[in-house]
């Protein structure tokens, strides 16, 4: 803790996804520091934030704070409201003494599902929370979203994490509670206080290492990709364009004669939408061996 003129500021980095309440957590912390007469700077970049992008907020407090941004590698506490966001910022944390507090909740961005070939894996962070915690030293991975859901409101997962964070900083709990009261909508005070306490209890009951957290989404299936081919009976194709318009991968087109052709074989996932929708039965989907897909 920075309480003398000379000691450096304490650095807390709060990260997550737009809409999760990153800014709320950092505002509560900043207000608390101010209450304790510390200088505090709280800095974030929003703009693209609410559109599902990464959000992060730097909170620095102490006797004297200069830079609004935490110098790289000097984050004392990293609070992640979403699992892979925590991993993104892991390098910002102090190697020797940093504390990592993360929700194991996964918010999988649409781009992680881009590979639609048979057997494809999701692009979500593959490592399990237990494996990551083993590396980082002081780390807490809790399913805060599930705890919040248990209290009837998944939106207060950030308050659960705030409770966990409160155990890592030497401010008395009463201060946290009074500031929290000021920051949440009046009709949610009671449930937020419960969530805060749940986060504290979770850490203090020492339920480390990570609870058995959800397996990374979609990492299970592994079927070898097979090179699909389309068989288009040109005599039956009347160029109605239905398959071209409906192909989810946009891999068909009408050739210069106005007949359907597979323009982008690499993108074809063999989903058979074209086969089903062709009013003239002109398209068949064949597997890599030239057999109709069963």
């Amino acid at each position: 803790m920075a309480d003398t003129e000379t000691s450096p500021p304490t650095n807390v980095l709060i990260v997550g996804v737009g809409g999760q309440g990153v800014i709320m957590v950092s505002k509560v912390l900043a207000a608390l520091c101010q209450l304790h007469g510390l200088q505090v700077k709280q800095s974030e970049v929003h703009g693209m934030a609410k559109r599902g992008g990464s959000v992060f907020s730097h909170v620095r407090f102490g006797a004297q704070v200069w830079s609004p941004i935490i110098p790289h590698g000097e984050t004392d506490i990293l609070v992640a409201l979403e699992w892979s966001e925590g991993l993104r910022w892991l390098d910002a944390m102090r190697r020797d003494s940093g504390t990592f507090i993360a929700d194991t909740q996964q918010i999988v961005p649409p781009i992680a599902f881009r590979d639609r070939r048979p057997g494809a894996r999701s692009g979500y962070a593959p490592q399990s929370p237990a494996a990551v915690l083993e590396m980082v030293g002081t780390g807490f991975a809790l399913d805060a979203t599930r705890v919040a859901a248990g209290l009837g409101n998944t939106r207060i997962a950030n308050t659960v994490l705030l409770g966990a964070l409160s155990t890592a900083l030497p401010f008395p709990v009463e201060g946290w509670i009074s500031v929290l009261r000021d920051f949440v909508p009046p009709h949610t005070v009671a449930v937020n206080l419960k969530a805060f306490q749940a986060g504290r209890d979770w850490v203090e009951s020492g339920s480390r290492p990570a609870e058995e957290a959800a397996r990374p989404a979609g990492a299970r299936v592994a079927v070898a990709a097979r090179g699909h081919r389309l068989e288009i009976t040109e005599a039956w194709c009347k160029g109605c364009d239905i398959c071209v318009k409906m192909c989810p991968e946009r891999c068909l087109r009408l050739d210069e004669r106005g007949l359907a052709e597979l323009a982008n074989p690499a993108a074809c996932t063999g989903c058979r939408v074209c086969e089903w929708l062709c009013p003239d039965f002109a398209v068949r989907v064949l597997d890599g061996l030239g057999q109709p897909v069963a």
Binding site: G218, V223, C271, V273
Partner: peptide, 26 residues
């Protein structure tokens, strides 16, 4: 669901993969 993933072209963040598959596609 035939796992054609036509809907996923919308890019809606609410749409994701289920664990069940059709011919290896989610």
């Amino acid at each position: 669901c035939t796992a054609c993933q036509s809907c996923m072209n919308l890019g809606c963040p609410a749409l994701g993969w289920d664990d069940t598959t059709v011919e290896g596609r989610h």
